[in-house]
Computed example of a mutant assay.
Amino acid sequence: MDLKDHIRGIPDFPKPGIMFLDISTLLRHGAAWRSAMARLADIIRPYKPDMLAGIESRGFLVAAPLALELGLGFVMLRKPRKLPGLTIGLNYALEYGTDRIEMQADAVKKGDRVVVLDDLLATGGTLAAGISLLRQAGAEVPCAATLIELSFLNGRARLDVPFESLMTYDS
């Protein structure tokens, strides 16, 4: 099954000149979604994670079912002020401005092996921030993964861990 057949391109979203790759068409096709999760599980399993982390919000859709498939725990990396209890956070640079992600301070233990996931790798800033935040909490990050990589933006160059994706778009 070619998973790209289940990704819809929406032109000029969120602004003119951008082709948004919409995973909602993959999510609503049961067989394709199951295939995507099984393929990601096969890719992630050799990294021997203790848990998976998903980046808000579409990364949750990838990491949570994958954690269930692999019998692992799941950690949320969220936008500021969205998590209860004590949190730790990291500010990071975007192409035009800054952003912040946070996680609960007790979400991982020192030495936990945590694979971080998102739906798509573009310029790599958010995924790199997720890796840094997990390390700040004491975790080891053996790998990062996404459903889709926009290879023409060279986001993987910003990551200092092995990177895996199911689908690559070259333009």
Rank of each mutant, 00 (worst) to 15 (best):
G59V: 10
L66K: 04
R8Y: 02
A53P: 00
L66F: 12
L150N: 14
I43N: 01
S24K: 12
L121N: 06
E69D: 12
H29L: 04
A53H: 03
A137G: 10
A128S: 07
G17Y: 09
L21V: 01
T123N: 03
S165M: 05
A144N: 00
S165C: 14
L61Y: 07
D99G: 15
T87S: 08
I44D: 02
L121S: 10
I148H: 02
L86Y: 15
G71F: 15
V141P: 09
I88Y: 03
K110E: 13
E140V: 09
M76A: 12
A41I: 07
Y96D: 07
I7M: 06
L83E: 03
D5K: 15
Q136G: 11
L153F: 07
L21M: 06
P65R: 01
G125T: 02
L153N: 09
P162E: 02
A157D: 15
A129V: 01
A145Y: 03
L127R: 06
G85E: 10
L66N: 14
G71E: 10
R156W: 02
R58Q: 10
L121F: 11
F152P: 14
P11R: 05
V62T: 10
K109M: 12
G97E: 07
L121M: 13
A63E: 03
A128C: 00
A32Q: 00
P49L: 11
A129M: 04
D5T: 14
S35L: 13
L3V: 09
C143Q: 11
S132G: 08
E102C: 15
P49F: 14
F20V: 06
M103V: 13
A32I: 06
V141R: 05
D112G: 13
E149C: 08
L21G: 01
K109S: 13
L133F: 02
G138F: 12
M1G: 15
V62P: 05
S35E: 10
L159A: 15
T98Y: 04
T146G: 06
Y47C: 11
L134G: 08
S132N: 13
G71P: 06
A67K: 01
P49C: 11
M51R: 15
Y92M: 07
L90F: 05
C143S: 14
T126K: 07
A137Y: 10
A32K: 00
D170A: 02
G89S: 09
F152A: 08
L150C: 08
G30T: 07
D106A: 15
L26R: 09
T123F: 06
L26A: 12
V141S: 05
G124V: 06
A137S: 02
L159V: 05
K110D: 10
L21E: 07
P142Q: 09
D5S: 13
D42R: 14
R135C: 11
R8T: 04
L121P: 00
A64F: 05
T98G: 09
S24I: 12
R45D: 08
A137F: 03
S171N: 11
A157N: 08
G111T: 12
I44N: 08
L83D: 04
F13Q: 03
V115Y: 03
R158L: 09
D42K: 12
F74M: 15
D112P: 09
G124C: 02
D118L: 07
I44K: 02
